[in-house]
Design a protein around this nucleic acid. Structure first.
Lengths: 108, 108
DNA sequence: TGAAGACATGAACAGCTATGCAGCTATTGG
DNA sequence: CCAATAGCTGCATAGCTGTTCATGTCTTCA
């Protein structure tokens, strides 16, 4: 099967919107932090070294787009990537970018 | 092996930049038009009903990021998605968005 | 050579967006 | 009730970006 990748206008816009949410480094870091296991707002803020306010601002968008799912536990709210498809795509792309270096390998 | 999807700062930025290029509907349409087979600038402009100038502007970014490869034939220039990984990812995501309609979740 | 076709590019502009600051709500525990 | 903790949100703003218009470059053909 070859060319069944024709998608209509609305679908392109929807897909673009998805990519847009992943197109900001800060936001992408937040998403990646919720890949493996749920992460709280405070934990992300601390780990990424940004304000909790900024994390919340981004989470608002990600929540609205159903890209992350919120789960309140006590006074903390945990976020996780809900869609398995998105999750595997991100894992895949992360690997892709990590392997793509091919020439400059930095120790770390 | 489980959580090896830790990618560093630079890689996140690079990945975000990739997504950024796919985050504009017009630009995404251009990319999708180059998925199966090379497409000329004029052909894309006509098919997408936008000016050739605008197509060129977008192609400039996509070319610079090595997301599309240019191939001049006569006075026409054909563009195609070079990276197989990106191509399959896009095909996959397009399918995902197209199928997503049937299984919609309702916020409870 | 000159003209026309196919792209590329530079400048300018309107609209968008990521971020910081301040104040807000919600939950837990006295 | 009050205080503390964790997170959310409105507003302002500096910086970015997609688009148009005009012009420039490269290629083919007469």
């Amino acid at each position: 099967m070859k060319a069944r990748l024709r998608i209509n206008e609305d679908e392109v816009v929807e897909l673009a919107e998805m990519f847009r949410l992943m197109s900001d480094p800060t936001r992408l870091k937040i998403i990646m932090a919720c890949l493996d296991e749920p992460a709280s707002v405070g934990a992300m803020a601390e780990r990424l070294e940004i304000s909790a306010s900024l994390v919340s601002h981004h989470l608002r968008l990600l929540r609205a787009a159903r890209l992350l799912q919120a789960d309140r536990r006590g006074r903390m709210v945990f976020y996780v990537v809900g869609d398995p498809h998105i999750r595997s795509m991100l894992t895949d792309m992360a690997d892709h970018v990590a392997e793509e270096v091919e020439g400059e390998i930095e120790p770390g």
